[in-house]
Design a protein around this nucleic acid. Structure first.
Length: 293
DNA sequence: CCGCGGGCCTGAGAGC
DNA sequence: TGCTCTCAGGCCCGCG
């Protein structure tokens, strides 16, 4: 599912097609995404140049020459297809594996770079929005969002500060975008496995009674950075392979160590535990009850 | 303010 | 084979 590493991979895939390019044509086939597109969506984009393509949490941000930012969110099932414009396409050309998918092509951008970007999202949990650059940070989407886990400002003290006094578990706290941005259900499980921490531990144990980070907080921050960086690295290679075959830029299946492995033997050498699935605030958690304590 | 649970949406997979 | 049911999860919102 598109969590931070997948979103970052998509951003990198879009960059050569979008950066320094103008929107030459825009087709909106469905405007009723998670949130409806603004009525003047096309008008505000057409002819504008993308001056830079960034990411914050799970949002892809295209800076525009107009001073606005195009915010793109993939939701649960969103992806982009990148293809050459000005070329006759056989209907269904890119869909040799999932013949019916064209019906979920909701937005088509043609860029002056010669690339066409097609936003596909079967479940329509994704959305796009336009916001003035200088209002982005204060806006409803980013106002309350926590630090970027791979940025310099995210460290054990930050994490401890955000978790001190929390009544929830580590699993639930790490899933909270206000605590740290970009982790979702899958990577929270993977991070806790890497840190050898039980998802049921209380988040408040990341801070001592003076609010300072505990040893566990350092371990956890390290695990977050390692797991995310590895996933992004894996995405980079998978991105190239994927582009060659279908042109589709979405999320892809990493090989996860605990996620969706209920009943399998733990991959930690010599552990021998059996991966368990529990439900925390309505979401599946996968962990090894032997080596995650 | 905080934590929790429901809802949005569709496709995949299980079970009968 | 085909129907129905459940589940998946990012994020918002309303409830207690």
């Amino acid at each position: 599912m598109p969590e931070l590493p997948e979103v970052e991979t998509v951003r990198r895939g879009l960059e050569p097609a979008m950066e320094d390019a103008r929107f030459t044509s825009i087709e909106v086939r469905r405007a009723d995404l998670r949130f409806p597109l603004p009525k003047d969506f096309v008008q505000r984009l057409i002819g504008k140049t993308v001056t830079g393509l960034g990411r914050r949490a799970k949002y892809i941000l295209a800076d525009l020459s107009s001073g606005e930012v195009l915010i793109m969110h993939l939701g649960m099932s969103g992806s982009f297809r990148v293809s050459r414009s000005n070329r006759e396409k056989t209907p269904g050309e890119f869909y040799h594996e999932r013949a019916n998918d064209a019906k979920h092509d909701h937005i088509v951008f043609e860029m002056s770079s010669g690339w066409t970007l097609t936003f596909n999202d079967p479940r329509r949990f994704g959305f796009m929005r336009l916001v003035a650059r200088n209002e982005l940070e204060r806006g409803p989407l980013f106002r309350a969002i926590g630090p970027e886990p791979l940025g310099n400002t995210f460290d054990a003290a930050k994490l401890a500060g955000a978790c001190k006094g929390k009544k929830s578990s580590l699993k639930v706290a790490l899933s909270d975008q206000k605590v740290v941005a970009g982790l979702g259900n899958i990577y929270v499980c993977e991070v806790l496995y890497h840190a050898r921490l039980s998802p049921k531990r209380m988040a408040s144990m990341l801070a001592n009674n003076k609010g300072e980070p505990t040893e566990t907080a350092y371990t956890l921050v390290d695990a977050i950075k390692v797991v995310l960086n590895e996933a992004i690295k894996a995405g980079g290679s998978s991105l190239r392979d994927h582009r060659q075959t279908t042109g589709e830029l979405g999320y892809f299946q990493h090989s996860f160590r605990v996620y969706d492995r209920e009943g399998e033997i733990c991959m930690t050498p010599g552990c021998g535990g059996k991966i368990r699935r529990i439900v925390q605030t309505g979401r599946s958690t996968f962990y090894c009850p032997v080596c995650q304590r």
